[in-house]
């Protein structure tokens, strides 16, 4: 059983459950998509574990497909949240264009099953960090104040910032210094556990805030 479940699948499964509980009745497209995205994330991780640990085959192609879903969802989320303050279309289109170009380049240069598309991953991380910072900037510039404590959009973006900004060092240097610890796991594995914990904790909290916001809204 422990072979089927990894710490990542557990975290993602719990977030998926929270998303269902909090967002099932939500009428907003983005929050509904959040449930679907968490299902895709959990399924990908679960399938990757089965392919890797039980079937002992390469599962990198699965993550390369997953990147598409991840980028679509995160870009859409940031677009939705920035839209409340500015017109983010040009910004999101440029960012998405860059990510898409990088993805196509890696598909053609590395094939689909050989390596993980780390260049696309790093580029998208940098773009999302910039988007998140821009979101905070427009949030601060806005004349109205918000109740940050219960603001779902804010905490969702905080999760994005922590995950992508926190992963900068390991993304940049992991290929150069691949460090395997005495426990048998790569350093990257531990750091990503922390990053995933942070990301999904903030997202879970944002789902809870969203459910609360929906209840309070007329």
């Amino acid at each position: 059983m422990s072979k089927v479940f990894s710490i990542f699948t557990i975290i993602e499964f719990l977030t998926f459950i929270i998303a269902i509980i909090c967002l099932f009745k939500d009428k907003s497209l983005f929050w509904k998509l959040a449930i679907a995205y968490m299902l895709v994330t959990f399924s990908t991780e679960f399938t990757a574990v089965i392919i890797g640990r039980i079937l002992h085959q390469h599962n990198v192609w699965l993550y390369n497909i997953y990147i598409i879903f991840e980028n679509c969802f995160v870009s859409f989320g940031l677009y939705q949240f920035l839209k409340q303050y500015v017109n983010p279309k040009p910004l999101i289109l440029v960012g998405s264009g860059l990510i898409f170009s990088s993805y196509c380049f890696e598909v053609f240069s590395h094939g689909f099953t050989e390596v993980f598309y780390s260049a696309t991953n790093n580029l998208s991380a940098a773009i999302y960090v910039l988007y998140s910072l821009y979101y905070f900037y427009v949030l601060l510039k806005d004349d109205n104040f918000i109740k940050l404590k219960y603001h779902p959009q804010f905490w969702w973006v905080v999760g994005v910032l922590f995950y992508y900004f926190g992963g900068t060092i390991i993304n940049l240097f992991d290929d150069v210094f691949r460090v395997k610890l005495s426990t048998g796991h790569w350093l990257r594995w531990y750091i990503y556990i922390i990053l995933n914990l942070l990301l999904y904790s903030f997202w879970s909290y944002s789902f809870i805030c969203r459910a609360r916001q929906r209840r309070l809204l007329p």
Partner: peptide, 21 residues
Amino acid sequence: QVTTLIILATLIFLLMPVFLI
């Protein structure tokens, strides 16, 4: 040394969003 460096740098990168918040 590399491990320590990466962990420290990652911690610093995680602390920055904390200060921002």
